[in-house]
Design a protein around this nucleic acid. Sequence first.
DNA 1: GCAAGCCATAGACAAACTTCGAAACACCAG
DNA 2: CTGGTGTTTCGAAGTTTGTCTATGGCTTGC
Lengths: 122, 122
Amino acid sequence: MSNVKVLPLLEPDVVAACCPPLNERPMSAEEAEVAAKMFKALGDPVRLRLFSAVASHEGGEACVCDISDVGVSQPTVSHHLKKLKEAGLLSSERRGTWVYYRVEPSVLAAMGALLAGPAKTV
Amino acid sequence: MSNVKVLPLLEPDVVAACCPPLNERPMSAEEAEVAAKMFKALGDPVRLRLFSAVASHEGGEACVCDISDVGVSQPTVSHHLKKLKEAGLLSSERRGTWVYYRVEPSVLAAMGALLAGPAKTV
DNA sequence: GCAAGCCATAGACAAACTTCGAAACACCAG
DNA sequence: CTGGTGTTTCGAAGTTTGTCTATGGCTTGC
């Protein structure tokens, strides 16, 4: 099987399909491995702010120059954006001088469903 | 009660109120600090499995002995459960010989709302 | 071609994290 | 009180992570 990727990118497909609701049944080790990467990506305050800045921008995308004001150096911003991309949460596209980052809606939905879970008949 | 906490526990109140939807507006540094702790807590495969095991158990609570089968030593399980508790995601209660961990429903709902966000009219 | 601006990469270092075995603590049954 | 079981705490590797400075690559404008 060719599940050995040359790039450590989590693709939207994998992410969207990884996640049964948390309170549906105990997660398997493999599912937890995939899902934990997404949570870990959002587990840093700087990354969370960057992600929120992109997600709340017009059309769900933003130029790096628009969101670099989070209190850390520019290379650090770039480093965190790369991590978010590797986790499958963001995608980037160069458009002339600037690079635009965009959220992956399906990933957001998958994570939301993971947490919201089924009707909690407790 | 003293308003100065000796324990670094995040209380459900704080957690539930911390989170405007990610794509509503850019997160402030303080909001990101609180929310990132929760995401980081779920950003480890072992913790995610433990949390899922508790959440999917009868009534949303489980004894440690029921969920210790995640492939790491038992002290490590205890360590991770403590982390989840410090992040405000779980609460524990001793009931005779065993210790039961329970999910905080309001926290789950808050994180779900954070990710699901408002209607995405993109 | 050359300078300037935006973004990414490389290398380095301190801090935090995960994990373990050993020991300590808490509770129940005789 | 004593022994046994379940859980937490302690101290210590080894690894990962977050941040910086310095440098390189790419695109635009003159």
